[in-house]
Nucleic acid binder design. Structure first.
Lengths: 204, 204
DNA sequence: CGCTTTTGATGACAAATGTCAAATACTTTT
DNA sequence: AAAAGTATTTGACATTTGTCATCAAAAGCG
């Protein structure tokens, strides 16, 4: 379960009249007061310590999360090995989009790679906003376009032929993550072993 | 340039009162008559022979295309090698989404892998629909969610550790493409060499 | 139909990457 | 500061995949 502890309560009060989510949404479209109030009422902050898992199986598919502070990775278990499929930071929204293409096929996990502060966005809220506020669909559509592009970049990145070239592309595409994420996770994201990444870096 | 030849004209007449695009959109949300008319007026069919390129540099970023018939691949040139990043078939919409994350960095091409029939969707039309019809944003948002999932699947697929496992995943995720796409392109999509794919298949 | 081009399969070998083990460097905790 | 736990590097070697050459099969074409 997602636990709301004391410091979360404080943050909740702090954010009460203006969830950081509002600022993100407003980058895409103006919002009226009614929708802002609704968002403020139905989102809440949560925090996780470094290395903790953000979604327990129980809460899977109940929330999306805006990252207010910190870095989060998403990964899928393929037998014993973990495959990191994305790494996200501040002002990005993460979480499993529902209606998985191949449901039940492989489970996705989210893990905090730093102490993180998140805003939880219940899927029930998204549903309500999409149903009742046309502008929510504008915001959602524009954000999905951006997330689609970033997923395409990830799909391209891992098809680059050599470990070295993939790493170089990573440096260009995600320059800010290099110093925040351990090489272990970067290697997993690049679909190479830690030792190979270490050698690629030594050579450069 | 996109050329509209005689048979395209015929198809245009045939589709005049109901672009196949309408049917696709209606799977996501009802459309009123006004928007239907607008779509019918501003989309048009085009066709390409097998192996032809669908977007010339001149027309890059001017259209999306609904695939009515056939298979299309998208690829990016990485030096001399082509990297196939997706393969799409009937009822999917393809084309470069504007506002590339890293613009000018790498060029994306579209190629017909069978004789294809497409409906061209000018970006100007998308813009107009999003501006003037709230339901267009509902349709767009829902479609982008689906395309996002499929991009995530592609990003996951190519991170699977061995050629054989990637191929097996491909068989499960894209069963209908096996018999329509040459192994050359499947190998490129799986980020392995044709010879490797050939050996993986021989072993199975 | 015969010719040419493309596609796919296979062998021999090279190069890249993975695996395992150990050493070193960093962080965190006590 | 010492101890314990991670993170990263490095070496030796195994395995996978790529490369190049060749051949056969299939598809396209006059």
């Amino acid at each position: 379960m997602i636990s709301v502890n004391v410091s979360d309560e404080d943050r909740w009060k702090m954010y009460k009249n203006s969830s950081p989510l509002i600022l993100v949404f407003k980058q895409f479209n103006p919002l009226n007061e009614e929708i802002e109030n609704y968002i403020n009422k139905h989102t809440f902050p949560v925090s996780f310590k470094k290395n903790k898992f953000i979604i327990s199986p129980i809460d899977r598919n109940k929330f999306l999360f805006l990252i207010v502070k910190g870095v989060v990775r998403g990964y899928i278990k393929d037998g014993k090995t973990e495959i990191t499929t994305w790494i996200a930071k501040e002002n990005e929204i993460v979480g499993t989009i529902r209606n998985l293409w191949l449901e039940g096929d492989s489970e996705e996990y989210l893990q905090a790679l730093e102490d993180v502060e998140l805003i939880a966005i219940p899927h029930a809220l998204s549903d309500y906003l999409y149903e009742n506020f046309p502008e929510a669909n504008i915001v959602g559509r524009k954000m999905m376009e951006i997330y689609y592009r970033s997923a395409e970049e990830r799909a391209y990145l891992c098809r680059i032929s050599s470990a070295e070239k993939r790493y170089k592309r990573f440096l260009v595409s995600f320059p800010d993550l290099i110093n925040r994420v351990s090489l272990k996770h970067i290697a997993s994201f690049l679909a190479i072993r830690l030792e190979t990444l270490s050698r690629v870096r030594a050579k450069m």
